[in-house]
Structure formats: C-alpha cells, structure tokens
Amino acid sequence: MRYEIRVDGQLSEALTSAFPELDHVLMSGHTVLFGHIVDEAHLYGLLARCQSLGLRVLEMRQLPE
C-alpha cells in the first residue's frame, strides 16, 4: 500500500534521510513524505519516528496504487 504523510515545515536533508524508504517533496511550509508502506506496523513505526524527531504530522492518507 502507498501512503503520503504531510508534516509541518520544510525538512533538512538530515531529517529526510531518517526516512530512507520514502520519497519526499518540499512544499511551501510543509514536507510531503510518500512511498510504499509494508504493513500497519510499518505505518505506526513511521508515525513514531515522526514523533521522536519532533515533527508535527498534518495529514496522512492512503494513495491509490
């Protein structure tokens, strides 16, 4: 399944590299991380990673395949 996670602010290279399995695109005032997600455990793991890096999740949604 594919997901996108929109977080507040533009991420530095160091922070986007903390999500090596996802692609990202910087927008005005936020960053969209997107890509293939293995299962629910992976999804929750990504959310926990966002939290531990101090990122604010604005939106998260499943993308059509």
């Binding site: 977080v7 507040d8 602010g9 991420l11 160091a14 005032g29 101090g54 604010r56």
Partner: peptide, 11 residues
Amino acid sequence: ERTAVADFLLA
C-alpha cells in the same frame, strides 16, 4: 522560517 521547528533550531 518555514522549516520544521526542531530540525531548524537543532541545526
């Protein structure tokens, strides 16, 4: 600044 707060400030 428009960067993520923690990311920016820490750097």
